[in-house]
Write a protein that binds this DNA or RNA. Structure first.
Lengths: 167, 167
DNA sequence: AGCAAGTGTTTTACTTGTAAAGTATATGAC
DNA sequence: GTCATATACTTTACAAGTAAAACACTTGCT
């Protein structure tokens, strides 16, 4: 049986016989897997009234286990400053994060999880991981490991480019 | 050297020692690879004044090599009908696709590439494939093949779910 | 024929994200 | 001290997508 990307590659071969479609086999599939996974995995978040991006902010605050400034959050979650501003407003209004001014630098503020925020992320995270695991469940564990390793190689490569960096 | 997702996994391990972070190794990396690739690969499209989604419509018309209705385009490009309507308006205004009414069914129209549209996609496609190839170039060909195969397995699995289907 | 139900497409109202400009504060040269 | 420049963050104006409603037409039942 053939996946949708293999079908698309064959269609291209028919109209452009000379074309080397090999890169599509990786990148097309990666795109398609991403979209299907995202669609599936965002559903449980919606039930808690959060978008993926908001969840990522709570996650960053929890896993780094300390206060973060808006720009640190932007870097950690690979988001623009403007996007972080909006999300923090929402998370503050919902009482999930709290803001504290910096003592020395008036431009900066520090965000932390409230009790409620921490409770929420600690409930959601295992849910999310389990859900992710269920999406992969049809793949043998050894295949999952191979896939993780190959994606790690690729990611390291892509991170080497001009692109964004963490922390 | 460690990729960003491996770092995040270690951070989670520190604050939640019991947590099985293995699913993140696949899904987190897949997400991150997707975002970096998208960011990189969309740049050449912008130079031609197209978004990825508009490019996908031209691509579908080219590779299927026949007229398509808006709903066929929606299915082929995994987009909502509303999104397709907007994109077709833009592509028509730019003279890249042409619309023709159906003889028998007044609700339906048929879209085809104009000469200009076909010239554009035939120029862009090899560019895009080459660009994709360059993103993967740091990975040995054999590793690329393995990655494509594993992603194909995963994709087949994910397509089996309730989700969207092609053609 | 006439109407209920279904299908194909577009429109509307809204959400989310971005780039660029704007605001406020800090830093270093003089 | 004060000014130019840099930094941190927010606001604004806009782009692009969606879900649900609206619209237009077709189909099949009677």
């Amino acid at each position: 049986m053939e996946d949708i990307v293999a079908q698309v590659m064959r269609q291209w071969q028919r109209v452009h016989p000379g074309l080397d479609t090999a890169p599509m086999a990786v990148i097309g599939r990666l795109n398609r897997c991403f979209l299907l996974i995202q669609q599936a995995a965002d559903a449980p978040l919606r039930e808690h009234g959060l978008t993926r991006s908001e969840f990522d902010i709570l996650g960053a605050l929890r896993r780094l286990d300390r206060e973060l400034t808006p720009s640190q959050i932007a870097r950690e979650t690979f988001a623009s400053g403007a996007a972080v501003t909006k999300r923090l407003r929402f998370l503050e209004e919902r009482g999930l994060v709290a803001r504290r001014p910096d003592d020395r630098d008036g431009r900066v503020s520090h965000l932390s999880l409230t009790g409620q925020g921490r409770t929420l992320i600690d409930r959601m995270l295992p849910e999310q991981v389990d859900y992710d695991a269920s999406l992969l469940a049809g793949l043998a564990v050894e295949r999952q490991r191979e896939l993780a390793e190959l994606l790690g190689e690729l990611l390291l490569l892509l991170e080497g480019r001009p692109g964004v960096r963490a922390l």
